[in-house]
Design a protein around this nucleic acid. Structure first.
Lengths: 193, 193, 193, 193
DNA sequence: CATGAATGAGTATTCATTCAT
DNA sequence: CATGAATGAATACTCATTCAT
């Protein structure tokens, strides 16, 4: 109402942030709505002014974070540069996103295919998968990647990336300090022909 | 209570199986104890004859499965054969385990570092990690793997493996039919020097 | 706030109307204050400018409707005409009121002795009962009504009247079309000596 | 389990009794489930072992009491005796039921057509109404009742009966002491031709 | 031993009421 | 004056756990 910087609702944002944190820490079912309210410093009832239910809330977070991920990683993705450069760019953008929003990344990982995600959330996920697949297929056509099921290659790269991130998180190492360039090189060698 | 084959209690086994299934399907907090009892075809109270609490149950499963994984994957692991062979063996043993016990594998993945795992469960996990690390360090000493933090390499390999499994699960493809040899080759190339 | 016709506040009236409707449809506890606000097309807070609480609101309605009923039914009630005529007049005035304000009548019926009615509301109710009783006692003194406890006779007449109204409401028959004259004759025969 | 007299579940009965009392005193929406549990001296959760929801509970009570009423009032209703005798029997059976189960009677009155009654409950109600209607129509055919819409006559009689009961309840008079014979005579005169 | 009825603390959600704008 | 966002106590309902049988 007052400050210019307060574009959208303060509280909505606070709720989303708090819920993201807690869902990452304790899981969806392990997080009580009043806990979210407490951490967001709002009343329990306030959450229901912004989200119809706990499920609606988790879905809102999923879609928002997935799209944020998409904006950072796939927006303006160059299709004409060399495959090696494409891979590096993709990987580094993913690293950039993960460093900037580590919780978001972990959240997206954890909720990949959770039963409480609704059709729309799943659609957002699917769109992104198809994008990646297309890039891989194209590169395979140029003979620059191994001739395997694109899903296998994608599984290896995304899984490997997650493995690196998890390694950092588990030992409380800062993500900035990770050897992203080396990891990128490893995973490139995994899939290049 | 008579048959020789019935070493441990029938019921205990049934409970563990049912709980494993449900924890994988719906998560720890998403699974009610009476549901476990129903699927195990025992009374709800019976669960508490074998396990002190729901947490004790999930920890028992975690330790049991982790050790089963260990038995299949690391028992009698040859230290003298070539690194390439060591990697292939490790990878294929992991594939064997995952094909034989897919739920167990997914369970272990999902509960990696869950807050309700107790100290002992974490210790089991740690022991296994150290084992893998030792193998990697040794191979690095021989100059056969990239000279990176062993945790990075392990993250890539384990993550990549999980990525392949998840890929199969997501598209309901049988794990037997996955191209394990190709995946193994990819991940070897990822980490070899 | 300007027009002469707007004696009391527009909004107060709208709130009373909306609340009457909803209390009849869903009961006192079954009606949410914001619902009343919505139907009255005012803000939820506005209700509290006019009424101290939900209870105060229901009491205000009760007293207002009870007094409206009183004005139609007992004002200028002739004490000198024949008992038969008195009864006919009373009955037809009640019918007139019920036809004009069916919701009000049903509301009064439903909230007869509700625990959230306060002392003043109960007093309004009592005054009206005493009036009726006096008429009955007088007529009994003239030997024109059965020599029973006046409360019994009043119970029969008022109950019978309600029964007729409920019959119409239940089958969605318009109250105008009811055979009021016949009903009046029935109930007169019930109590006449 | 033990006592012979304990045919059905003790607790189920206690819950039904407590709920009947409270629904009569405070209405459906005005009664909290834990209040019912308290008065029934059972845990709140226990209610849900016997009834799926609060609505299921109120419907169970409605059906049970309606049928109990039916058993007392309409079972073995003689069709061959004189109409005057039929009416007296009906009326006195209703009085007997009301004296024996006053709360049940008031409950049935209050929940007549409540929106949370389900189709089955409504069907029970309808069956009884049709029974009464048939008796009235028959008597009209014999020219012993006024030639009015049977629903009107039924409304007058049932309404009048309720009026008498309410009169007693309001002044805390015992129902036994009511002058049922006189009331019966009044209502007979109301409808006889 | 095994059971499942019983429990009550805990959960998601609603709603009467307040108050800053 | 009027509002409706915000609140938190209260509600219906669930579920881990116990215990009499």
């Amino acid at each position: 109402m007052s400050a210019l910087a307060e574009k959208k609702s303060d509280k909505r944002e606070a709720i989303l942030d708090a819920a993201l944190d807690l869902f990452v820490e304790r899981g969806f079912h392990g997080t009580a709505v009043p806990e979210i309210a407490d951490r967001a410093a709002v009343g329990a009832g306030t959450i229901y002014r912004y989200f119809e239910s706990k499920e609606a809330l988790v879905n809102a977070i999923y879609r928002m974070e997935k799209m944020r991920f998409g904006h950072v990683v796939v927006d303006d993705f160059p299709t004409t540069i060399a495959t090696r450069e494409q891979f590096r760019l993709l990987f580094m953008r993913m690293a950039t996103f993960t460093i900037a929003h580590p919780k978001s990344f972990v959240f997206l990982e954890l909720h990949h295919h959770a039963p409480y995600l609704d059709a729309e959330s799943r659609a957002v996920e699917e769109r992104m998968t198809m994008l990646f697949t297309a890039v891989i297929v194209q590169a395979q056509a140029r003979g620059e990647l191994k001739a395997a099921d694109p899903r296998l290659l994608m599984g290896i790269v995304m899984g490997g990336f997650v493995g690196v991130v998890r390694g950092c998180v588990e030992i409380d190492q800062s993500l900035e300090s990770a050897d992203w360039k080396l990891a990128e090189q490893c995973l490139w060698e995994a899939i290049r022909s």
